[in-house]
Write a protein that binds this DNA or RNA. Sequence first.
DNA 1: AATTAAACGAGACGGTACGTCTCGTCTTATT
DNA 2: AATAAGACGAGACGTACCGTCTCGTTTAATT
Lengths: 186, 186, 186, 186
Amino acid sequence: MALPRSGPVRSEAARIAILDAAVALFAERGYDHLTMEGIARQAGVGKQTIYRWWPSKGDVIAEAILEGKLLGGRRDLPRTGDARGDLTAWLTDLFTLRGSADGEGLLHSIVAAAAGNAETGRRLRSEILAAPLSDRLSEALGGATGPRLAAAADALVGAVILRALSREHFDETDMRALVDAVIGTP
Amino acid sequence: MALPRSGPVRSEAARIAILDAAVALFAERGYDHLTMEGIARQAGVGKQTIYRWWPSKGDVIAEAILEGKLLGGRRDLPRTGDARGDLTAWLTDLFTLRGSADGEGLLHSIVAAAAGNAETGRRLRSEILAAPLSDRLSEALGGATGPRLAAAADALVGAVILRALSREHFDETDMRALVDAVIGTP
Amino acid sequence: MALPRSGPVRSEAARIAILDAAVALFAERGYDHLTMEGIARQAGVGKQTIYRWWPSKGDVIAEAILEGKLLGGRRDLPRTGDARGDLTAWLTDLFTLRGSADGEGLLHSIVAAAAGNAETGRRLRSEILAAPLSDRLSEALGGATGPRLAAAADALVGAVILRALSREHFDETDMRALVDAVIGTP
Amino acid sequence: MALPRSGPVRSEAARIAILDAAVALFAERGYDHLTMEGIARQAGVGKQTIYRWWPSKGDVIAEAILEGKLLGGRRDLPRTGDARGDLTAWLTDLFTLRGSADGEGLLHSIVAAAAGNAETGRRLRSEILAAPLSDRLSEALGGATGPRLAAAADALVGAVILRALSREHFDETDMRALVDAVIGTP
DNA sequence: AATTAAACGAGACGGTACGTCTCGTCTTATT
DNA sequence: AATAAGACGAGACGTACCGTCTCGTTTAATT
């Protein structure tokens, strides 16, 4: 039973404007250059309206992830019947995020956001990265579940992230080697 | 033939003081709260002396990594004869870094530094993370080299980093599952 | 003929709570630090209830003066038979207000309120400062009235205010010199 | 013996730009609406440059008064031989300040500044208000000095200020009555 | 009694300004 | 010429209030 409370209710319009502004600026300039003041300006909102509901820019981004605003439809794996091929394609696509934003790279920014904010880190893995792989990866591993499946998913995604952080190229050969390393040679 | 030049040369004392100050503040407060001004203050050095030699805080940290000041002796793998056990121990040790700094966690800070600075990212992987594993990992994989070896190293280290970013626990079972996934069940 | 109207009438309790809160905060922290939000909080009242009836904090204070809440019983002159002595005592008492509030001084705050708000200024002089003097001062001046009396009252009170604003001390000698200057040497 | 110190010296250009901006905004909008941010904007200066040298807007105005930037040449009394007439003219001129700024009135603003800032209050009386009167007033009083002279000066100026604060008109008759009250009928 | 509408407490909203912090550049005097 | 020191214009930080605007509740006068 909730406490009855009078007064105006939270503005959904402001909430959406803030998340959209945050996502737009994030994609444009990266996590480091994202500022609360910039979000407020872009969203046409008072700063206090942001601080009233989110303690930091990291939490704004975390909520944007939850709403699927940050990486839109990118989360779904293709489903061609060839599990190995689908995984490879998805991982390649993920690596490509590295270079899509101006200056910093969207993947770098997402990692920076995750490093700086617990909630973002939590959601990044569970909702964006490892989760979509699970089904197909389980197939490819012959029905693995639990720690075994989680470890394989983390190994694949983690390797891609590490390569992106190291700014090294990551060609088809490398990707094949990675998939082989984790789910075995066919 | 070098150009003749008058005046004092670069002060090695200042260079060291700056790197030490950067490392101390990094460990204490994390990468996000590390500031050029703070480093200068702590090192007893003018700000210009930092900017003269490094373009950003990320590059200061990158150099500190190169000097081995950031993660000291932690880079070496144990060598007990049991390659699988040595790798597991080293990876567990790496994961533990997650919680060693105040507030943010040293591993999170290192990842943030790598995400924000290309040179740090480059060195992080080549000199700190993947490199030390190579020898023992190659053994464990029956003499693998090249992309195969690199992929396996990235998979192991990347998985640990991803788990750290997600703030999830990572117990012995998980670690064993990871090693099994990458180098096969014994 | 009033328009017929249904609904509740103005709450006298709220009105009094607001004035009392305003006076308390004014005395405590001075006019500059007095805020509408603070008054509402202290009075346990919605902000709109204040804005509904007063356009600014200055007007709240003006009404508090009118109600005699601001300077309580201080407005009355003693009546000992010695008009000169009574005036001197009252003026000295007025000057003493300078130091009675925390930080700013009540007299400074009253002057600031008068400077910032026409209504407060109007009432300050007519009801608080010059008015109480009139009778005894008229006596002391041998029955003067009109501009002559007003000028003398303003000269006495204005001099005290100016001394307070200048933060200079104002001892018995000074006060005697002032009274002599305005109502002549005995 | 001053401590030797290296580093850049305070920028005189910035100091002047700040004082000029403060004076311009003060005259335009009054003391209450004067803001540090507005001064910085108008002066083309970082906020920190103001806060580095002055703790509050009141102190900026106090320094502007000291430099004679606030009331320019207005401080001098005319000298026609008729001391009483000169004083009357000067006091009338002072009262006129009441209405010269938009909205608040310059005299109200000066009083507000003095009420809110000790240094401004101190300088207001000693350098702007009472001081210029002294010579001619002493003449008019037949050579009075010390507390007697100070009291007369404060009475004249204070009365004018009080009338201004009360928003009452103050015509020639009133002014004559005031001068008569303080320096006697001719 | 039922209806109607204003006053109320609470507080969200778009803003402005606060005073502090750091940025990266620049200017000094010293070594 | 490199240094320690630090002033400078710039702008973000997180907080406090501004005055306006809903909300849901309470309370009277009018039906």
